[in-house]
Amino acid sequence: MQAGLAAQSRQSGPSRRLGVAEATAGVLALLLVASAVVPQLLAPGDPLAIDPLSAFQPPNFAHGFGTDESGRDIYTRVVHGTQYSLVIGAAATAIGLGLGIVLGTLAGMLGRVIDFTVNRFLEVLFAFPGLLLALLFIVIFGPGVVTATIAVGLSTAPGYARIIRAQLITVRSQAFVEAATVLGRTRWQILLRHILPNTLAPLFVLATLGIGQAIVWAATLSYLGLGAEPPTAEWGAMLSAGRTYITSAWWMSFFPGLFIVLTAVTATVLGRSIDRRMRHV
């Protein structure tokens, strides 16, 4: 997620034209949202229906992605699993971003002492790199989908806070803020009319980029047995179940993983595209 902002894509070529990558990402995003909202439309079957007679089938005409150890159709499960991943990803991002906004705004707006304190606090949180903060959280509150979601949100919060603080400080020191003071605007008017809108607009990009990362992390926790548990059709949990049969049934791991990657790539491409469009009006 830090990657996204740090690597703000440079302008190359006309920005208004829709690129092939952007168009593909847009279509994929629509498909993903559709499978989250109306999975029956894309995969009419029951993701939990077992059929022991047709267990461990490799991808074939009847089962495009093959079947698992209980004969459940992997395609159906992957499609129905989208809602778990998207909801968990969105919720975790919302938690992380929410905390990030609170911390970042505190640091960026309320004077030097608070800025210093929040900054030190963030520095300390960065010493729990990656999933470590999430694992600590899970130790305390126990495994499960809800704690895993909150844990992922917590882990991403310091990164968001730092970006939001930097953005606030950049916006605050810009000439148009001073120009508003010269016109006779009050501090609150300037905050509401200039600083916040210009700080929060990039958050949309952050959120889009962040959902991909959150989905990967949440799936990782499920894979490690600390989040959603099989037979739930969550992608990470499906991969975790497929791990046992990796030597004989690669498709059990491959397709859920492929969808995680596709989702994350879609989020990245969309996020960057939005970023570029917002930057070059």
Partner: peptide, 8 residues
């Protein structure tokens, strides 16, 4: 590459 989950 950046989107690849370690476990997958």
């Amino acid at each position: 590459a950046a989107a690849l989950p370690h476990f997958w």
